[in-house]
């Protein structure tokens, strides 16, 4: 049986995230952006545009950090001499 069909929302953890777990960062950052912009900005004009921009910048920053960490782990660490 495919695990998704046995899933009971709100009672069991979501299954079958696989290698796509990082996509859940997007709604996480979106929620933070909405709350932050709603409390921080003096005016709520162009609210969703600012939320989109903030979300995109945060995702870009996290993506850049992931690339840097990938390069460090797979390129830098192997060339380090041990002992």
């Amino acid at each position: 049986m495919i695990p998704l069909f046995a899933w009971i929302p709100f009672l069991q953890p979501m299954g079958a995230l696989g290698t796509y777990w990082w996509l859940l960062l997007l709604p996480l950052i979106l929620g933070i952006s909405i709350t932050y912009r709603a409390t921080h900005d003096a005016s709520l004009d162009r609210f969703w545009y600012r939320v989109s921009l903030f979300t995109a910048k945060s995702m870009l920053a996290m993506g850049s950090l992931a690339i840097v960490m990938y390069l460090f782990v797979y390129l830098v660490i192997p060339i380090l001499r041990v002992g």
């Binding site: 929302p9 979501m14 933070i32 952006s33």
Partner: peptide, 14 residues
């Protein structure tokens, strides 16, 4: 924003 985050957390993690 806040309730969306919290309910999403319950949906994802139970």
């Amino acid at each position: 924003g806040v309730l969306g985050l919290f309910l999403s957390g319950l949906l994802i993690g139970g």
